[in-house]
């Protein structure tokens, strides 16, 4: 399909554009399908009260009501939710990147009996639905007295994180040229020293990819906070939505402002780290959970 374009000479250019017209039309239609809800969300978020359902739809409202954003922050303790989300995301990020990289390096570079079996066990847990262990894990954390604390959300991150991250980072470490590590070993550096000061700096692109996936996962996570966080002061931004679900305390324009606010960091991450972001999605297919 893509093969012809490379051999085009300038006179063919017009023919190429003409041939591409149907492709453009199809892509425009898909872009419209994709974008319409997003534009609807943003335009509603700045509409005046009572204009949310105006007929016909006001795609570009005449008056911009940014106070919807302010109100979506004041009606509920959104700033506290934001603080909680940031705490959880940061701790999980640190835990998953460092322990994930350590485990991955162990699987990539150390030979030990049972390595293949253990690696297969790890891979097989990649497919394990989170929901399967939900009930017994809940009982475990309840026994520990961790309900309504951030601990059930944060502590598991310090045990290697998602097996998928370990898999991704292991691939990354295995792809590094081993000369540098060999040289460090000859200089007398031990296994962990080499991991930390030679392999980790080289693995930065892989670590960034895992970091992005980790941030997205925990920023977006709804189910775990729903189960473990009980009092409003401990809610995350995602869980905050639980408060105005079914209640009519918050108008749709404010709800959309809240949704836009929650989406902004994700888009920011995309624009800042587009390559790593895409790589993470490509590698996983598990985004959007």
């Amino acid at each position: 399909m893509a093969s012809t374009a490379a051999s085009l000479s300038p006179p063919d250019q017009r023919g190429r554009t003409a041939r591409q017209l149907p492709v453009h039309l199809a892509l425009l239609a898909m872009a419209l399908f994709s974008l319409l809800p997003l534009v609807y969300m943003i335009s509603t978020s700045v509409k005046a009260d009572g204009r949310e359902f105006a007929v016909p739809i006001e795609w570009a409202p005449e008056e911009i009501h940014l106070e919807n954003y302010q109100r979506s922050f004041t009606r509920f303790p959104t700033l506290i939710f934001l603080r909680n989300s940031v705490i959880i995301v940061v701790f999980c990020l640190i835990g998953e990147v460092f322990t994930g990289a350590l485990v991955a390096y162990g699987f990539a570079r150390a030979r030990f009996p049972g390595r293949h079996v253990l690696f297969m066990v790890m891979l097989s847990t990649m497919m394990l639905p989170q929901m399967v262990t939900l009930i017994p894990q809940f009982i475990l954390f309840r026994e520990l007295g961790w309900i309504n604390t951030f601990l059930p959300l944060i502590v598991p991150a310090f045990f290697g994180g998602h097996p998928f991250y370990i898999f991704l980072l292991r691939q990354f470490f295995m792809g590094l040229p081993s000369e540098l590590e060999d040289a460090a070993r000859i200089d007398g550096a031990g296994f962990f020293r080499i991991w930390w000061s030679v392999a980790m700096p080289l693995a930065k692109p892989g670590l960034t990819t895992v970091a992005i996936l980790s941030i997205l996962t925990h920023w977006n996570d709804f189910t775990t906070p729903l189960i473990y966080l009980k009092s409003t002061k401990n809610f995350t931004v995602a869980l905050g939505i639980h408060l105005f679900k079914d209640s009519y305390q918050m108008r749709f324009n404010q709800q959309m402002a809240y949704a836009v606010m929650m989406t902004l960091p994700v888009f920011l991450l995309f624009f800042l780290f587009q390559k790593n972001f895409i790589r993470g999605i490509t590698f996983s297919g598990m985004g959007g959970r």
């Binding site: 974008l35 969300m41 939505i241 929650m262 959007g288």
Partner: peptide, 17 residues
């Protein structure tokens, strides 16, 4: 443009739809 909307967090997507 086609990819970005699918990155809206799922709870926000649910609210939107």
């Amino acid at each position: 443009v086609i990819f970005l909307p699918s990155q809206i967090p799922i709870v926000a997507t649910a609210l939107l739809w």
